[in-house]
């Protein structure tokens, strides 16, 4: 299995977009290398804007650039793409409905050694609450590349969240990536696992362990958290009658929270949520942190056992 970082998927997707569409602009707040934006910058020096360590200004400039037909992509860490500039995004981008693509790397605990100041675990919640905002959290390099290309076609604000570490690149570039459409990656009967971002791979690993326990899993790769693909979720639940969600994000406000709302409204079903439970992260290697904060295949297996017992 090829190992690649999702942020490189963003960088390569952006470079490809830059070649096809001259209206694509890129802005970065002093993290060009980390965001893998150097190829775009080198190929399109006139369409790349270094704004310095001034994220609020970056969001405002991006909003203004849309007036006249440009499609700006902002790049910085997820923490500085959201919580640091929430009001700028809320007023100048979301409420103003500007065609800005907020591209956010180093999301979650897998940012690693830099620690909790940089490990945003609340961003999905903040961004999904904003009207007009699309929220996407792809799972590997290929999917991040496809998502980057797809969001340029969507007119309106988008939050695209990806990560730092190299992870298995298991999806195909031929996959049908469509904003708001989940992708079924495994068919099973006993439980539905709905996962996003890095936790999709952990779900696949978990499903193999569950198979040894004679538990078969329906796995949904839900790259788009808003709008949520209700149909794919409900169809699966009708069959399995129980659900586990898995995300590298706070349980409060994350994917699990969105799924819980859907279930409560339309199809009450036992649900367990794998995510960070109301705590900050800390320094460590990505793998150590996934283990410590219960964000891996082991945690998913335990959640599945628990939810099945509640059926």
């Amino acid at each position: 299995m090829e190992i690649k970082d999702t942020r490189s998927g963003f960088g390569d997707g952006l470079t490809e977009l830059g070649r096809k569409n001259k209206n694509i602009l890129a802005l970065c707040a002093d993290l060009t290398g980390s965001l893998k934006m150097n190829d775009f910058k080198n190929e399109n020096p006139d369409r790349f804007f270094q704004v310095g360590i001034a994220e609020a200004n970056m969001m405002g400039i991006a909003a203004g650039m849309t007036i006249g037909g440009k499609i700006p992509f902002t790049g910085t860490f997820a923490n500085f793409s959201t919580s640091r500039v929430y009001d700028q995004i809320r007023q100048s981008i979301a409420y103003s409905n500007k065609n800005v693509k907020i591209c956010a790397s180093h999301a979650g605990v897998t940012l690693g050694e830099d620690g909790a100041t940089h490990q945003v675990l609340e961003d999905i919640g903040m961004m999904k609450m904003l009207p007009n905002m699309i929220v996407i959290n792809p799972c590997d390099y290929n999917q991040t590349k496809l998502a980057t290309i797809a969001i340029a076609e969507h007119i309106g604000p988008v939050y695209l969240r990806f990560g730092r570490p190299k992870v298995p690149n298991f999806t195909s570039l031929e996959q049908n990536f469509e904003i708001g459409k989940g992708i079924k990656i495994n068919d099973g009967n006993h439980v539905t696992i709905i996962a996003t971002g890095h936790l999709v791979w952990e779900s696949i690993k978990a499903s193999k362990k569950l198979k040894e326990l004679n538990i078969s899993s329906d796995i949904i790769n839900i790259h788009t958290i808003k709008p949520l693909d209700e149909e794919i979720i409900i169809n699966s639940i009708k069959k399995t009658k129980c659900v586990v969600t898995a995300e590298e994000h706070m349980i409060n406000g994350g994917l699990g929270d969105s799924v819980a709302q859907l279930l409560s409204r339309k199809i009450p079903t036992p649900l367990e949520m794998v995510g960070v439970n109301d705590t900050f992260g800390e320094s460590g290697t990505p793998m150590q942190l996934l283990e410590k904060y219960g964000l891996n295949d082991k945690a998913i297996v335990n959640a599945v056992k628990k939810v099945i017992s509640r059926k």
Binding site: L25, D46, R47, F49, A56, N57, M58, M59, G60, I61, A62, A63, G64, M65, T66, I67, G68, G69, K70, P72, D87, Q88, Q91, S92
Partner: peptide, 16 residues
């Protein structure tokens, strides 16, 4: 927030 937006718009004018 308005000055940043105005600057963005001014950049787009230059690009166009």
């Amino acid at each position: 927030q308005g000055l940043s937006v105005a600057i963005g718009s001014a950049i787009t004018k230059k690009l166009n």
